[in-house]
């Protein structure tokens, strides 16, 4: 074997230096790729709360919602988010066809999907006529204005919550139970509490099936900030 010349040794060193540079450059690219892929596939801890917050309902002008702010059989849709930012709920003050408050009694509601029952507390407020429930249709997740409350005076589905997407109908007078399909589950009811002294309403809990599109009522969205209050919105 011949002894390598100085030039050959120099060439080899240069070649190795180039290879080292290559490892650095391509390594940087690989590191950037691996880092993003690994960080991406780690399942995120879903935003949410560990327990139901108690949120007082506020008007957009900053005052708490009082009984007089709620219109009996309001044809407009009034919603508030609870317990998370992306979970809207109907806020209804129910009345009869003469727009006189109707007292809503506690009731038992059946879930047709698995044929189980759960208890829904009655209305709150001075006339026990204010109720609330999730405004996300349990069939395929349509939200207002597709799903909306028809006042008792309207011609189609009077006194019912009807979803225009596929025709699911719920009865707000008896715990938002299923009237017609295709939905197989009632709307989850919000348990409201009423403070007589300050004439204000708070959302405290959800009962019934899980809100559509969420793995539990408390996950899959972000918390409502600032804590302790949620603002109602009114749409046509």
């Amino acid at each position: 074997m011949s002894v390598p010349t100085r030039d050959e040794i120099k060439d080899k060193d240069r070649r190795n230096f180039m290879k080292l540079l290559g490892v650095m450059i391509i390594g940087a690219g690989v590191a950037g790729t691996l880092r993003s892929v690994v960080q991406n596939i780690i399942p995120p801890i879903e935003g949410g709360a560990s327990s139901f917050p108690i949120l007082t309902l506020y008007l957009p002008n900053g005052n708490p919602v009082s009984t007089d702010d709620l219109i009996v059989n309001n044809p407009q849709t009034v919603t508030f988010n609870f317990p998370l930012e992306n979970e809207p709920n109907f806020l209804l003050r129910l009345g009869d066809s003469n727009n006189k408050d109707v007292e809503i009694n506690p009731t038992e509601v059946r879930i047709p999907a698995n044929n189980t029952k759960y208890k829904v507390p009655g209305g709150v407020g001075p006339y026990k006529s204010v109720v609330a429930a999730s405004a996300i249709c349990q069939h395929l997740g349509c939200i207002p204005p597709e799903i909306h409350f028809n006042p008792p005076s309207s011609s189609s589905f009077p006194g019912k919550i009807h979803c225009d997407c596929h025709g699911s109908t719920y009865d707000p007078y008896s715990g938002f139970g299923v009237v017609t399909g295709p939905t197989q589950a009632p709307l989850p009811s919000v348990v409201l509490s009423y403070d007589e002294k300050s004439d204000s309403y708070s959302a405290t809990l959800l009962v019934g099936p899980t809100i559509y599109g969420h793995s539990s009522d408390l996950t899959g969205g972000s918390n409502i900030t600032p804590s302790g209050k949620t603002t109602v919105t009114t749409t046509q």
Binding site: L21, I25, I26, G29
Partner: peptide, 24 residues
């Protein structure tokens, strides 16, 4: 911006391979 950075890294890597082929 991260995507832009990655694009520059891959461009550099490609340019380096070209350089290496020219060198070696």
């Amino acid at each position: 911006l991260y995507g832009v950075g990655m694009a520059l890294l891959f461009t550099l890597a490609g340019a380096f391979v070209k350089l290496y082929r020219s060198h070696a």
